[in-house]
Design a protein around this nucleic acid. Structure first.
Length: 563
RNA sequence: UGCCCGAUGGUGUAAUGGUAGCACAACUGCCUCUGGAGCAGUUUGUCUAGGUUCAAAUCCUAGUCGGGCAACCA
């Protein structure tokens, strides 16, 4: 699919273009996507991935995939595989540039030593609580740590012994010696190395001291010769520290720059790793890849295509303004994509029996059905037809309003691809519910044409009762009932979970045309007049499970809602 | 509160001192063997006040509002 966006020159593209023009990095563009392996990737990450890889792709550069694993307490190998799989699925290739920040722990340790030797860092023994007092609150300057002027040799010795495991967690740390009076708190002697007696998912028990993000990140970027280090807005105030680290170390292979853009927020969902983790752990959803989750694996399972997500990332743009994007835009992107590629099938999700009284019992007919009206190459298929069919309960009304074009007593309708039928009467059960609709068909209308050119406004889908196959169909809807669950919760003094949509998943047994029997997990189809669906990996041979990706636009339901 | 960042229709964005445009959403109409898709059209916008300029969404100043930071998280 071609991108529908006009690929605007957003500010990051502008910066890269300018740098290329001024030959700032000798014509190179090297970016990186640096996830911390402590959670699953979501649509917000997809935006960042598309940006990071996109800038490289557009400029003949390279984009590295780097596990930012500097905190063993929070990270787990479990996440590494899912992250690489998700990035790959989105369609990006990091080539040989797959890195771990932890592979550079040795160099970072040396860099920290260099700072100490230069008198630009020191080992501090202040407790975390005391440190808070010393750092001070914004308007007033902080107080210097009593260890700030510790002799270099002593700091060096302590640092070595920290590494040797002589001290307990939190007893000592290394701080950069910057400026306790800075209005930017991040410059008031920030911690750059801390003691963590914790096995690391990647380096095992090799280390018990670990660099903090603020120290490690600029170094990782420099070691990999990153030219444009793109991150989200909350790191803006960290940039002076990022630059300080780069500026105060010798022999760094490159001089990377950090640029910040606004993260993605989407309506009717939450995006923070912590919230998503809660939803999973509390069983509010069925795992990280629950199709209601905004995770990449969830969206994949829901039936989203990588193309639609990439296109979405392009359409929403890149700015420094924190906004809330309407999920309708995402849905538009997937419809737009699937409309062109998803084969059409017929399925009835809320069945009502339809009997054609003038069609011989036990006889079967067969009609040609178009697989995709948007793609002639998709060809046609045969659909079986018989005296007893199922139609959608919504497609029949005993007492229809004026503009109801579907089936009603005395009204004629087209059974898609098959023939015209006219309703003669209905059969009800003791409770007064309609259990059967009886029709007669016009034998001259084979294939669904009206031989005398009479107008038949309604066309409905159907399945042949004896030929239909059952499927568990999962109808997914938005996870929350309000646009911004976090903001609403804060405003109303509630919890975001209070706004979980109790109808975000409805499971029904659908009756599908026989062609669905061949469907494989991951296949996407459009059920005519209903929506786009994807075969779930849960599907067993003969036991289909199907997820609704999104509904089709439905102007009839819009009319009835208004009435 | 101090520092940093930002503000263009309902939403997301473009306009790089020179006609405020695009997409989504909404609404009309046309068309249709998906009330889908498609086509045509309509409605709605530069936070406020000053200034610079022939000309300001754009530059300057002040204000207002919103976001971020104040973990030995990232």
């Amino acid at each position: 699919m071609t991108t529908e966006a006009n690929s605007s020159l957003h500010f990051i593209r502008q910066i890269v273009a300018d740098d290329l023009k001024s030959n700032k990095h000798n014509g190179r563009v090297v970016t990186r996507f640096p996830p911390e392996p402590n959670g699953y990737l979501h649509i917000g990450h997809a935006k960042a991935i598309c940006l990071d890889f996109g800038m490289a792709l557009e400029n003949n550069g390279e984009c590295h995939l780097r596990m930012d694993d500097t905190n063993p307490v929070k990270e787990d190998v479990e996440y590494i595989d899912s992250i690489t799989a998700d990035v790959r699925w989105l369609g990006f290739d990091w080539g040989k540039h797959f890195y771990f920040a932890s592979d550079c722990f040795g160099q970072m340790y040396d860099a920290c030593e260099e700072l100490i030797r230069k008198g630009k860092a020191y080992v501090c023994a202040l407790s975390q609580d005391d440190w808070k007092d010393y750092r001070g609150a914004p308007p007033a300057p902080g107080k210097e740590s009593p260890w700030r002027n510790r002799p270099v040799e002593e700091s060096l010795d302590l640092f070595h012994r920290m590494r040797a495991g002589e001290f307990a967690d939190g007893t000592l740390c290394v701080r950069a010696r910057i400026d306790m009076a800075s209005p930017n708190l991040h410059l008031r002697d920030p911690v750059i190395y801390r003691i963590l007696h914790s096995d690391h998912p990647h380096t095992g028990d090799k280390w018990c001291v670990y660099p903090t993000y603020d120290f490690a990140h600029p170094l990782e970027d420099a070691y990999e010769s990153i030219t444009h280090s793109l991150c989200t807005l909350e790191f803006e105030v960290h940039r002076p520290l990022y630059d300080w680290v780069i500026d105060n170390l010798d022999h760094l292979p490159s001089r990377p720059r950090q640029y910040e853009f606004a993260r993605l927020n989407l309506t009717y969902t939450v995006m923070s790793k912590r919230r998503l983790l809660e939803l999973v752990q509390e069983g509010r959803v069925n795992g990280w890849d629950d199709p209601r989750m905004p995770t990449i694996c969830g969206m994949r399972r829901r039936g989203y295509t990588p193309e639609s997500i990439r296109n979405f990332a392009e359409v929403i743009g890149v700015t420094k303004y924190e906004s809330l994007t309407d999920v309708a835009l995402l849905e538009h992107c997937v419809r737009n994509d699937l409309n062109l590629r998803a084969p059409r099938r017929m399925a009835v999700l809320n069945p009502l029996k339809l009997v054609i009284d003038n069609f011989p019992e036990g006889q079967t007919d067969e009609f040609d059905a178009v697989n995709n009206p948007e793609d002639a190459a998709a060809g046609t298929r045969k659909v079986k037809f018989s005296r007893e069919l199922f139609i959608e309960r919504d497609d029949f009304m005993e007492n229809p309003p004026k503009k109801f074009f579907r089936l009603a007593p005395g009204q004629e309708v087209r059974l898609k691809y098959a023939c015209l039928v006219k309703c003669t009467h209905v059969v009800k059960n003791d409770a007064g519910e309609i259990v059967e609709v009886h029709c007669t068909y016009d034998p001259a209308s084979r294939g669904g044409n009206s031989p005398d050119g009479r107008k038949v406004k309604g066309t409905i889908h159907w399945v042949s009762a004896p030929h239909a196959i059952k499927a568990q169909v999962r109808l997914y809807d938005r996870l929350f009932t309000v646009e911004d669950p976090m903001a609403q919760a804060a405003a109303e003094g509630k919890d975001y979970r209070d706004y979980l949509n109790p109808h975000s998943l409805e499971i029904v047994t659908g009756l599908c045309e026989p062609a669905l029997a061949d469907a494989q997990p991951g296949d996407r189809v459009q059920f005519e007049r209903i929506g786009y669906f994807s075969i779930d990996p849960d599907a067993q041979p003969g036991k289909l499970a199907i997820n609704r990706t999104t509904t089709l636009k439905d102007s009839w339901s819009k009319m009835t809602e208004k009435a």
